[in-house]
Simulated scan of single mutants.
Amino acid sequence: MASTITKIPTKYLFMHLISSSPKPPVSRFFSTDTAENRNQKLERIADELLDLTKLERYDYSILFRLKLGLNRYGPSVSGVTSPSASSPGASASETKAAEKTAFDIKLEKFDAAAKIKIIKEVRSFTDLGLKEAKDLVEKVPVVVKKGVTKEDAEAIIKKLQELGATAVLE
């Protein structure tokens, strides 16, 4: 016995159920007047939700989850944060420094005798040619590498300092 299932849009199914039943059963908790008002209210809410833009629907879904207590992923993206989200003694600059994942390496100065070695080192961790690396090193102070992880940046700075250059992490 195979059964066939047809997909009927829920709006039509709901309207069919309302119109096909002779009268909703009267309960001791609500009368038929409130049931009809409730149906009209739900239809009005559904129509208003369908009229929202994508961004408004997204904001509404976040707000609705928060109201229901379903915010298991922390505060919403809209920037609203709870006071307990950060520690009471933490300042904004400390939280920014903690969140930073990409760093820049800035060459501040170097020993003139080690210029050629520094140019070679700059070429090794950048994709620059000899002339571009030379021009870059001669523009001291200058950022020689951007968007590096902290571990890689510290290794590069250590190499540059061994050659006689002063480099800092930004």
Results as ranks from 00 to 15, higher is better:
residue 102 A to F: 03
residue 147 G to F: 14
residue 118 I to P: 00
residue 59 D to V: 02
residue 147 G to I: 15
residue 44 R to A: 10
residue 75 P to A: 14
residue 108 E to L: 14
residue 81 T to P: 06
residue 163 L to R: 02
residue 19 S to M: 07
residue 6 T to V: 11
residue 141 P to F: 13
residue 134 K to D: 14
residue 139 K to N: 12
residue 10 T to R: 10
residue 132 E to W: 03
residue 48 E to I: 08
residue 156 I to F: 07
residue 95 T to R: 12
residue 126 T to C: 04
residue 141 P to M: 14
residue 120 K to Y: 02
residue 138 E to S: 14
residue 165 A to S: 08
residue 6 T to W: 07
residue 149 T to H: 03
residue 114 A to D: 07
residue 153 A to S: 05
residue 78 S to Q: 13
residue 15 M to V: 13
residue 135 D to W: 00
residue 162 E to C: 00
residue 113 A to I: 06
residue 105 I to K: 02
residue 167 A to W: 01
residue 121 E to K: 00
residue 117 K to M: 01
residue 159 K to H: 06
residue 34 T to L: 05
residue 71 N to S: 06
residue 1 M to L: 14
residue 16 H to Q: 15
residue 12 Y to D: 10
residue 148 V to D: 03
residue 147 G to W: 12
residue 39 N to W: 11
residue 152 D to E: 12
residue 16 H to A: 15
residue 69 G to L: 08
residue 145 K to E: 04
residue 105 I to C: 05
residue 55 L to H: 13
residue 12 Y to Q: 11
residue 43 E to A: 12
residue 47 D to I: 04
residue 23 K to T: 12
residue 66 L to H: 09
residue 52 L to V: 10
residue 77 V to K: 05
residue 29 F to T: 10
residue 147 G to V: 13
residue 156 I to P: 06
residue 138 E to W: 04
residue 76 S to Q: 12
residue 61 S to E: 11
residue 40 Q to V: 07
residue 136 L to K: 13
residue 119 I to S: 01
residue 24 P to F: 15
residue 82 S to Q: 08
residue 66 L to I: 12
residue 23 K to N: 11
residue 16 H to W: 13
residue 80 V to I: 11
residue 86 S to Q: 07
residue 130 L to Y: 05
residue 99 E to I: 08
residue 33 D to E: 11
residue 124 S to F: 06
residue 138 E to G: 12
residue 128 L to E: 03
residue 105 I to M: 03
residue 70 L to S: 08
residue 163 L to G: 00
